[in-house]
């Protein structure tokens, strides 16, 4: 017994016995779609992973996501959806922002944060959504969204938003997104939040931080 010597025929899977569901060859699309509903979670996961190669898999992946309870399969579905990208994926992800599963919602937000160009056309609708939770999730997306309009969208929230939890989330995000150009509107906001101590505290902290950075720059 020892370190095994490399032999010329050795492959990365040399000691592995590949099973049918996870074979070394890529199965065809029909087989993968069938495997998405297999009773075995590892087979469903492998199918979800391989479907990243097929752009027309998007509706099937979302359908499976909605009934999937196994975390490792959910993760594979999300990874494939993120790889596939495009408007259909973004719309499907946005529709899952109101999922009852916090894990699903958080992953949806994380993925949408990485798709700035595709998400941008939807941001204003999300920020105006009738459900305040969805508006908070939209602000969460803005937090790390690499899009030049992000500060402007956040300002719009600060000007229009009435719900204290949504407003509080927006003020909190100012710590990262705030710029000196926002100061006049933030100062104007102070009167609106004067009667809500936690909002006043958060706003004062954000203004102070922006001023510190601005004075130094």
């Amino acid at each position: 017994m020892a370190l095994k010597r490399v032999q010329t025929h050795v492959q990365p899977t040399s000691v592995a016995t590949a099973d049918a569901a996870q074979g070394d060859q890529a199965p065809d699309w029909q087989t993968l779609i069938a495997h998405l509903q297999d009773p075995q979670a590892h087979t469903r996961r492998w199918a979800a992973r391989e479907l990243a190669n097929f752009v027309h898999s998007v509706p099937h992946l979302f359908t499976q996501l909605d009934r999937e309870t196994d975390l490792k399969v959910q993760e594979a579905i999300f990874c494939s959806l993120q790889s596939l990208g495009g408007p259909q994926v973004v719309e499907g992800l946005i529709a899952r922002l109101n999922s009852d599963d916090a894990g699903i919602r958080n992953t949806v937000i994380e993925i949408l944060q990485t798709l700035p160009e595709e998400v941008a056309p939807h941001i204003q609708d999300l920020l105006a959504h009738t459900n305040p939770d969805i508006r908070i999730f939209a602000i969460d997306i803005l937090q790390l969204l690499a899009h030049p309009c992000a500060p402007e969208w956040l300002l719009h929230v600060l000007a229009q938003e009435q719900h204290p939890n949504v407003l509080g989330t927006a003020i909190d995000r100012l710590l990262e997104l705030g710029t000196p150009e926002m100061l006049p509107q933030l100062n104007a906001l102070q009167a609106r939040v004067a009667q809500t101590p936690y909002l006043k505290f958060a706003l004062d902290a954000a203004i102070q931080r922006i001023e510190d950075t601005s004075n130094a720059g």
Partner: peptide, 24 residues
């Protein structure tokens, strides 16, 4: 002897087809 004990392979982690065989 030590050099012979390591199998060196080229792989791109972003390539599904290439990573498929890296298991177990």
């Amino acid at each position: 002897d030590i050099r012979d004990s390591v199998l060196f392979t080229q792989v791109n982690l972003a390539d599904l087809a290439q990573t498929r065989e890296y298991r177990h």
